[in-house]
Simulated scan of single mutants.
Amino acid sequence: MKKVEIFDPAMCCSTGVCGPSVDPDLTRVASAVYSLEQKNFDVTRYNLANDPAAFTDNKEVNQVLHEKGADALPITLLNNEVVKVGNYPTNDELAKWLDVKADELQQKPRVAVPIDFN
């Protein structure tokens, strides 16, 4: 099975989809990753703020960061090989890499939001 790893820059939360102004690209990536996870694909995101060891322990990511600095983030690996640096993968790229249709990557997570009227 193919494995995709996305190494994100430091963000306030695991997806970066929080706060008053959300980058639409982060929303798209979060939806794509969620959709792939629902189909049992091996997709992992690492946030520099929360998972610094993942960045230092991965030889390929560490090398890119030493050569280009933190501006190289996000970095995407496919089967432990760097396939994209400096931008998130498009839905078309993810679809091609994982042999799925791009329109299958737009499933939105459904989250129950409690409402407290007290």
Rank of each mutant, 00 (worst) to 15 (best):
Y46G: 00
A32P: 05
D57S: 12
H66P: 05
F55L: 13
H66S: 09
V43F: 02
K68R: 15
N58H: 09
V64N: 08
T56H: 09
L65E: 15
D57C: 11
Y46T: 02
L48E: 02
G69H: 14
E67D: 15
V64W: 11
D71G: 13
T56E: 08
D51A: 07
S35E: 04
Y34P: 03
D71I: 12
D57N: 13
G69C: 12
V43R: 02
V64I: 15
S35N: 04
A72M: 14
Y34E: 01
N50P: 01
Y34H: 08
L65T: 11
Y34N: 02
Q38S: 01
P52E: 03
G69D: 13
Q38W: 03
L48V: 05
V61W: 07
H66T: 12
N62W: 12
T44V: 05
A54P: 07
N40S: 05
K39I: 02
K59E: 05
A54N: 06
E67Q: 15
Q38D: 04
D57E: 13
L36T: 03
D57Y: 07
N50I: 12
S35R: 09
A72L: 14
E67K: 15
A32C: 08
K59C: 01
L65Y: 15
E37F: 05
Y46D: 02
R45H: 06
D51L: 03
F41A: 00
D57K: 10
V64R: 12
K68H: 13
Y34G: 02
A53P: 04
E67H: 15
L65I: 14
F55T: 12
K68M: 14
A53G: 04
L36K: 01
N50D: 11
N50F: 13
E60K: 12
Q63K: 15
D71W: 07
V33F: 04
K59T: 08
V33K: 04
F55K: 09
L48K: 11
E37Y: 07
E37C: 04
L73T: 14
Q38T: 05
V64Q: 10
A32F: 09
A72T: 13
S35G: 03
E67N: 14
E37W: 03
V33P: 01
R45G: 02
